[in-house]
Amino acid sequence: MKAEPAVQRRLLDLAEVDAELARVTHRRRTLPELAEIAEAEKVLRAKQDALTTVGTNLGDLDREVRRQETEIEQVRAREERDRVLLQGGKVGAKQLTDLEHELATLGRRRAALEDDLLELMERREAVEADAQHARVELDKAQEAMADAARRRDSALADLESTETKRTADRRLMVGRFPEPLLTLYDRVRAHKGIGASLLRSRRCGACRIELDRNAFAKVKEAAADEVVQCEECGAIMVRTGESGL
């Protein structure tokens, strides 16, 4: 295949545009923020689960506190009823003894219930402190997630801008190449990743392999307008004063 040396040299500009577009594609897939977000999602789920668990414990304790308070109120009501009967002076000796015994029993029962309630309130206070800590930790996890998402979106926007500009540049550039040369370039690039590169100091710029004596002799003997390809990677080797020919 033939192509003017100047046209071949323009392939290097096209290759640089394609390399930048490839870097954009690679960076879009490998943004560090993507890994941060994946990790932040795990942490966020763990913090949400922790808050749910402590919230469940707090709810259980609240129900137990209310049950205990209700039972204490019932005991107090019974005590008050018995005191009213005692103070009324209208009960017999046996009933009086029974009421006094019942009041003593109720007093002990209320004291035990109040001790239990105090213990429950202390446990609830500790669990409430855990809940507050869990909410703080959840807020931190949500903020970390939001921060990573903002940075990801900013990076993606920059990449999108670069891709749009370089894609437009490429559309303008490809019209300057003869169709056979562009077809060869695109075919090599599709299979090898790099369609053309500079031959510098007897080394292919695409695969970085130095040409052996026979390969170098063939390239040196080729006409200036002959399109030459690397025997190792197939990339079009653009020859300039840096090629060492």
Rank of each mutant, 00 (worst) to 15 (best):
L182F: 09
L159P: 01
R166P: 02
T162L: 15
D158W: 09
V174T: 14
P180Y: 10
R152I: 00
G175F: 05
A157T: 11
S161E: 14
A146V: 11
A148M: 08
R150A: 14
V174G: 03
S161V: 09
D158C: 00
D169G: 02
T164P: 05
R150C: 04
K165W: 06
R152Q: 15
G175S: 12
A148F: 03
A149Y: 03
L159T: 05
G175L: 04
P180S: 11
L182E: 01
A146R: 15
S161L: 13
V174C: 07
A157Y: 03
K165I: 07
L156R: 06
R151L: 09
G175I: 01
T162I: 14
A168P: 05
A157V: 02
T167N: 02
M173Q: 12
A149I: 08
T183F: 03
R176M: 04
D153I: 06
M173V: 06
R151H: 10
S154T: 13
E160D: 15
A157D: 10
T164L: 13
A155H: 01
R152E: 15
L159D: 10
R176V: 06
D153T: 11
A149C: 01
R171Y: 01
L159W: 07
R176P: 04
D147S: 11
F177H: 08
E163D: 13
D153R: 03
E160V: 07
D153M: 01
E160R: 08
F177W: 08
P178N: 10
T167C: 02
R152N: 08
D158H: 10
L172P: 01
D147P: 04
L159K: 08
